[in-house]
């Protein structure tokens, strides 16, 4: 439900990272890393991104989403495992104190940029 806000932030992050030397920027792809524990619905995000990116250098850009699994480490026995089911108890010693190593990501990793001015020059 907050995907529109997320989409706008993504657009802002990418826009502000485009070097000023690029005269006619067009973003082809944006790579995101989204942890499985993040409260983001990817389909909603794509829809919001499509709408919000209109008339920006990101219009028509593809969102490539890397889904990051939830990795945990037990604070008692050190066991590391991937959480696939909503069970946050150590699979080895049944301890309940654990550190989440991944799964909460909501990151813009990189984007693919074209300068259309250069493209036309060739």
């Amino acid at each position: 439900m907050h995907e529109m806000g997320i989409a706008l932030e993504i657009i802002e992050i990418v826009r502000s990272s485009i070097p000023e030397s690029v005269k006619r920027p067009r973003v082809e792809r944006v790579h995101l890393k989204i942890g499985r524990l993040s409260a983001v619905v990817t389909d909603s995000l794509r829809f919001c991104f499509e709408v919000a990116s209109e008339e920006t250098p990101l219009a028509g850009a593809e969102l490539v989403v890397d889904e990051i699994p939830v990795e945990a480490q037990c604070n008692d026995c050190g066991h590391r495992w991937t959480i696939d089911e909503p069970v946050f108890v150590c699979a080895s010693c049944r301890g309940g104190s654990l550190t989440l190593l991944s799964g909460r990501e909501l990151d813009v990793h990189s984007f693919q940029l074209i300068d259309e001015e250069n493209d036309h020059a060739h």
């Binding site: 997320i6 932030e9 485009i18 082809e28 693919q112």
Partner: peptide, 28 residues
């Protein structure tokens, strides 16, 4: 108009454009 990357942006040429690494939390 400054890049928000924590370190310097690295840009590498790939087919049809270049890749700009950002690595930034959306909710930063």
């Amino acid at each position: 108009h400054h890049p928000h990357t924590k370190g310097p942006s690295t840009a590498t040429r790939t087919s049809g454009g270049r890749e700009i690494r950002v690595v930034r939390r959306v909710l930063d």
